[in-house]
C-alpha cells in the first residue's frame, strides 16, 4: 500500500511539473503584460511537433528537446513583434478573440504541414526503461526525467526573477508598469523578452510531453484549460503561486483518480461508488478552483499589485 501511494504521488508530481512548465509562461505573460494568451496551448503543440522534427534531423533526443524550445521561442518572438504588441493597450476581449483565432490558424497550419492524424514521437531506448526506487517501486525513467527538468526550470526561474536585473524589471513591470517605463526601462523590449521566454517554456513542455501524448493538431487545448486553472489557483502573475498550484492540481487530479472510488465505496454501495468516483474525480480540480475563487479570489500566492 505504501508503494502504491508513493508511486501515485510521483505520478501526481510529474503531472504537476508538466503543468507548471506551461502555466509558468502563461502566468508571466499575464502578470507582466496583462495579456491573456489563449494560444499558449498552440505553442505547446508546436513544441511537440518541433521535437519530432529535430529528433529526425539530429538523432539526439536531448538536443531535439532543447532546439524545440528555442524554435518555439523564435515563433513566439515573431508573434509578439508582428501581432501581439499591437494588442497590449486593447481590452481583454480583444486578446481572447485574436489568440483564439491564432489557435485555429495554428491547428490548421500543423494539419497542412504534418497531416491531421497523430504522428510518431518516441523515446530513445535508454529512456524507455524502468528504474528501481526504494519501497519496491519501479518507475519509468522518462517520467523521473520530466520531474527533474521541471525542478531545474523552477530553480532557474526563481533565480532569474529574484536575483537578476532583468528579473527585477519583470517584477517591477508586474507591479506597476507606468512607473517602470517612466524610470527609463525599455518596456516594449522587456515585454518581447518575457513573451519569448514564455513561449520557450511552453515549447519545452510540449517537447517533453510529446513521447507521453499523441502528437496531433489540437493537442494543446486540453492542457491549456488545466494550466489556466493552475494560474487562477496560484494567483495571476505569480511564479511561486504557479508552482504551488501546479503541484497541488497534479496531486489532487492523480490521487482523485486513483483513490476516490475506493474511498467512496467505504460509505456508499460499490455500484454508486464506481459511478460517482470517476465523475467526482474529474471535477475535483474545478471544485478546488471554485473554493479558492470564493475564499481567496486573488489566488494562493498573489503578486502584490498597485495601480
Amino acid at each position: 500500500m505504501t508503494a502504491l501511494i508513493l508511486e501515485q504521488l510521483l505520478n501526481g508530481l510529474q503531472l504537476g511539473v508538466l503543468l507548471f512548465l506551461i502555466a509558468a509562461g502563461l502566468t508571466l505573460i499575464f502578470g507582466v503584460m496583462d495579456f491573456i494568451n489563449l494560444s499558449h496551448g498552440s505553442l505547446f503543440m508546436l513544441g511537440a511537433y518541433f521535437a519530432v522534427l529535430f529528433q529526425g534531423l539530429t538523432g539526439s533526443f536531448f538536443l531535439a528537446v532543447t532546439l524545440a524550445g528555442l524554435g518555439v521561442c523564435v515563433v513566439g518572438l515573431i508573434f509578439e513583434l508582428l501581432l501581439v504588441r499591437r494588442l497590449y493597450h486593447r481590452s481583454h476581449l480583444d486578446h481572447v478573440l485574436v489568440t483564439y483565432g491564432l489557435i485555429l490558424v495554428a491547428n490548421e497550419s500543423v494539419a497542412i504541414l504534418w497531416g491531421a492524424t497523430p504522428i510518431f514521437s518516441g523515446l530513445p531506448e535508454s529512456l524507455s526503461t524502468l528504474v528501481a526506487l526504494p519501497f519496491g517501486i519501479s518507475y519509468p525513467v522518462y517520467r523521473l526525467l520530466v520531474i527533474g527538468v521541471g525542478i531545474v526550470v523552477a530553480a532557474v526561474l526563481f533565480w532569474l526573477v529574484k536575483y537578476t536585473r532583468i528579473g527585477m524589471r519583470v517584477r517591477a513591470g508586474a507591479t506597476n508598469r507606468a512607473v517602470v517605463s517612466v524610470m527609463g526601462v525599455n518596456i516594449s523590449l522587456l515585454f518581447t523578452l518575457v513573451f519569448g521566454f514564455g513561449a520557450f517554456l511552453a515549447g519545452l513542455a510540449g517537447a517533453l510531453a510529446g513521447p507521453l501524448l499523441s502528437v496531433q493538431p489540437g493537442m494543446g487545448e486540453t492542457v491549456l484549460i488545466l494550466s489556466f486553472v493552475v494560474v487562477v489557483i496560484g494567483g495571476l502573475g505569480s511564479i511561486k503561486g504557479a508552482l504551488l498550484a501546479a503541484i497541488i492540481v497534479g496531486l489532487i487530479d492523480t490521487m482523485g483518480r486513483a483513490f476516490l472510488r475506493d474511498f467512496l465505496s467505504a460509505f456508499l454501495s460499490a455500484r454508486v461508488a464506481s459511478e460517482a468516483g470517476p465523475a467526482l474525480a474529474s471535477m475535483l480540480v474545478y471544485i478546488l478552483m471554485a473554493l479558492i475563487l470564493f475564499f481567496r479570489p486573488e489566488g494562493l500566492l498573489p503578486m502584490q499589485k498597485r495601480s
Binding site: Q8, T222, T254, R257, S282
Partner: peptide
C-alpha cells in the same frame, strides 16, 4: 477493476499504477 477515464484525459499514469498493483 473497471476504470472510466474522462474523454479529455490524456495522461494515464495513475491508471497504469493501478493496473500494476
Amino acid at each position: 477493476s473497471e476504470i472510466y477515464t474522462p474523454l479529455e484525459q490524456n495522461d494515464f499514469s495513475a491508471e497504469m499504477t493501478e493496473i500494476k498493483t
